[in-house]
């Protein structure tokens, strides 16, 4: 691979920017603080432009699918039509107008609510298939925990089962001890992993900017 002139430059720029922002958190100097603020403001502006580019890219992908008559071209037509209508309405009437709110409350909200309902069904279905897919001790513990926590969440037909419901019940005990310990253990691992990933980016070992 032929190295480009901008490769070390972009890596140096990324490392320097990262270090300045990081130092701004540790050292309470006005200069570092103001540089950090400027960098954050720049990133917000860049992210707004990124959104415009992302939406344009999405429209191009679906336009290609539509013109080539690919599988799901009909859905691409719906997406493009919705995009044009939304941009037109929001652009003409403004983002806070009643027409723009109508698009949100009459189209987006019901669709997202329906997907939330599908999500519940998908989760139950996945749980039902769990033992068939992964029949091991951990899956049995997982399934048993889900059943105990769900059954203990509300009284069964108005009847509280002693030892399951209530503050001293099995559900409460499971949430207070093993679940909390597990959560803390996993979060600790995730936090250490995040620190390692951040340091690798700072040291330019990982280059998410593609340099």
């Amino acid at each position: 691979m032929k190295p480009r002139i901008r490769d070390p430059f972009s890596a140096s720029l990324a490392i320097a920017s990262g270090l300045i922002v990081l130092l701004g958190y540790f050292l309470d100097t006005p200069l570092l603080m103001s540089i950090r603020q400027i960098f954050i403001q720049w990133s917000i502006i860049l992210m707004a432009f990124a959104l415009m580019i992302g939406v344009t890219n999405l429209a191009i992908v679906h336009w290609r699918k539509l013109t080539l008559g690919s599988i799901g071209a009909m859905y691409s037509a719906v997406i493009l039509f919705s995009l044009i209508i939304t941009i037109g309405v929001v652009g003409y009437f403004g983002p806070l107008s009643s027409f723009s709110n109508q698009i949100y409350s009459s189209v987006l909200l019901p669709i997202e609510s329906s997907l939330m309902a599908i999500l519940t069904v998908s989760m139950v279905y996945a749980l039902a298939r769990l033992l068939r897919r992964k029949f091991n001790l951990f899956s049995i513990i997982f399934l048993a925990t889900v059943i105990i926590v769900l059954a203990g969440a509300v009284p069964l037909m108005g009847i509280e089962i002693p030892g399951l419901h209530g503050v001293e019940g099995l559900r409460s005990m499971m949430l207070r001890l093993p679940a909390l310990a597990g959560v803390r253990g996993i979060l600790l691992g995730v936090a250490l992993g995040s620190v390692a990933a951040g340091l690798r980016v700072l040291l330019s070992s990982d280059r998410p900017y593609g340099g």
């Binding site: 691979m1 990124a50 890219n57 999405l58 593609g210």
Partner: peptide, 30 residues
């Protein structure tokens, strides 16, 4: 959106490192 831009850039970088940059398509990162 910013993640999708980074994914395009990273994919482009991977194609370039393999010497097949001409095959890269922006719709690969969406």
């Amino acid at each position: 959106a910013s993640l999708s831009l980074l994914s395009q850039d990273s994919l482009k970088s991977a194609y370039r490192s393999m010497g097949v940059q001409s095959q890269f398509n922006l719709s690969s990162g969406r």
